[in-house]
Design a protein around this nucleic acid. Structure first.
Lengths: 209, 209
DNA sequence: GCAAGTAGCCTACTATGAGTAGGTTACCTC
DNA sequence: GAGGTAACCTACTCATAGTAGGCTACTTGC
C-alpha cells in the first residue's frame, strides 16, 4: 500500500520536497499548459495533472480553485505572451503605418511558430464553453483590435469610427483564420502569410479620392 | 414509486406514446439544439435533454451513440442550413463577381439574424475540444472557402492558387469575426457589415496592373 | 535549543453525470 | 391471437470534479 511511488515528475526544477507557493504555481502551470494543449480541456483530468507534477489534487484546488480556474490561469499567461509579442512589434517607431501593420502581422504569425504550446492552447481552447475563458480571450482580441484600429486610423483618418472598427475586426479575423490555415499547409511561412494578407488589405490602406 | 410523472415535455408534436424512430430523432434534435445553444455543450446533461423530450436517457444513446454524437448531429444540421443559405445566394446567376460576392456575404450575415439558434450553436461550439465536431466545422469552412476562392478567381484570374486560397481564408475569417462583432453591436445590420467588408476587400477584387 | 504557528501537503471521502446491461411492452403482421 | 420486433424503461457501473479534515516540515520568537 505504502508504495511511495517513486515516479518521474517531468517538472524541470524537479525537487522532491516542499516548495514555496509561487514556485509551485509556476510548475503546475507549466504542466497544465502542456496537458491542456495536448489533450484539450475536456479530456484532461485534474488527477492526471496533479500526478504529473508529483502532487495531489487538493493542492491544485488550493491554488487555482477549480479546473476552469487552472485553465484560465494558463490562458491568461499565454495571452499575455501573445500581447507582448505584438505590441513589441507595434512599438517599432519611426516607420510608416503600412510598414507598422506589416510588422504586427508578422509578429502574430511568428508567435505561432516560436511559442507553439501557448499558441496551441489559445487555438484549441478558443471558443470553449466556459464563459470566463471566452471573456479573457475576447479581452485579448479587443486589445488587438484597438491596436489595429489605431494603426488604420493613421492611414485613413477620414474613415468614421464604425468602419475603422469593422476593418480592424476583419483583419483580426483574417489573421486567426490564416494562422489556422498555416497549420494545414506547413510550407507557408509567417512571411508568406503576412504578404498574402497585406496584398489583400493594403489597397484599402491608402486614402481614396 | 410508479408515479408516472405527468410532466411537461415542451416538444411541439407532444404525443405521449411510441413514435417511429425518424420522428423521435427530429424531436430530440430540436430539444438538443436548444439546450446546447443555450447552455453550451459542457453544461448540458443528457439526463436533462432526455427529460425535456419526455424520454429516458438510453434512447438518446440508442439513436445518437454518445453525447458527442448528439451534438455532432445538431451541428451537422445547422451547418447544412448555413451552407444552403449561402450557396443559394451564390447561385444568383448573371451578375458580376463583385455583386455575387456581396450577395454571399449578405446571406451569411443574414443567417445569423434569421436562424438565431443554429447560428448560436455553430458559434458557441465553434472550437470545441471535440475532434469530430471540429472536423465537421472545418468541412463547412472548406466549402465556404472553395466557393469564395472560385468567386475571386473570376475577378482575378492572374493570381496564383496559393494567394487565392489565402484571400478566401482571410475573407471567411473576417466574416466570422464580424458576425461576432455584430453580437456586441446590435445596431449594425447585415447590410452594414457587408458594406464594411466589401469596402475593405473590393479594391483587391479589381485586377491590378 | 525549543515551543508554537503556519504553509505546504496528503488520504479518503461525496456527488454528479456519461454510458450500459438487460428486461418490459406496445404495435404490427400473418 | 401468436410471434416478432422496435420503442422504451429501471437500475446499475465508472470516471472524475470537487471537499473535509488532518498531518508535517519549516520558520520565527523567546
Amino acid at each position: 500500500m505504502n508504495v511511495h511511488h517513486a515516479d518521474d515528475h517531468s517538472a524541470p526544477t524537479g525537487r522532491r520536497k516542499r516548495l514555496p507557493r509561487a514556485e509551485r504555481e509556476q510548475q503546475i502551470l507549466a504542466v497544465a499548459e502542456q496537458v491542456f494543449a495536448t489533450n484539450g480541456y475536456q479530456a484532461s483530468s485534474m488527477d492526471d495533472i496533479a500526478h504529473r507534477v508529483g502532487l495531489s489534487k487538493p493542492m491544485l484546488y488550493e491554488y487555482f480553485g477549480s479546473k476552469e480556474g487552472l485553465l484560465l490561469a494558463c490562458v491568461e499567461r499565454a495571452r499575455r505572451e501573445l500581447l507582448d509579442a505584438t505590441t513589441e512589434a507595434a512599438a517599432g517607431a519611426g516607420e510608416d503605418a503600412h510598414q507598422l501593420l506589416h510588422d504586427c502581422l508578422l509578429a502574430f504569425f511568428r508567435f505561432g511558430d516560436e511559442h507553439a504550446q501557448p499558441w496551441a492552447l489559445l487555438r484549441t481552447e478558443a471558443a470553449i464553453p466556459l464563459a470566463t475563458v471566452n471573456t479573457a480571450l475576447e479581452a485579448t482580441r479587443q486589445q488587438q483590435t484597438d491596436l489595429t484600429a489605431r494603426l488604420l486610423e493613421a492611414s485613413r483618418p477620414e474613415l468614421d469610427q464604425e468602419r475603422l472598427e469593422a476593418f480592424a475586426e476583419s483583419i483580426i479575423g483574417a489573421c486567426e483564420r490564416l494562422a489556422l490555415w498555416r497549420d494545414k499547409r506547413p510550407e507557408i511561412t509567417a512571411e508568406d502569410a503576412t504578404r498574402h494578407l497585406m496584398a489583400l488589405i493594403s489597397p484599402s490602406l491608402v486614402a481614396q479620392a
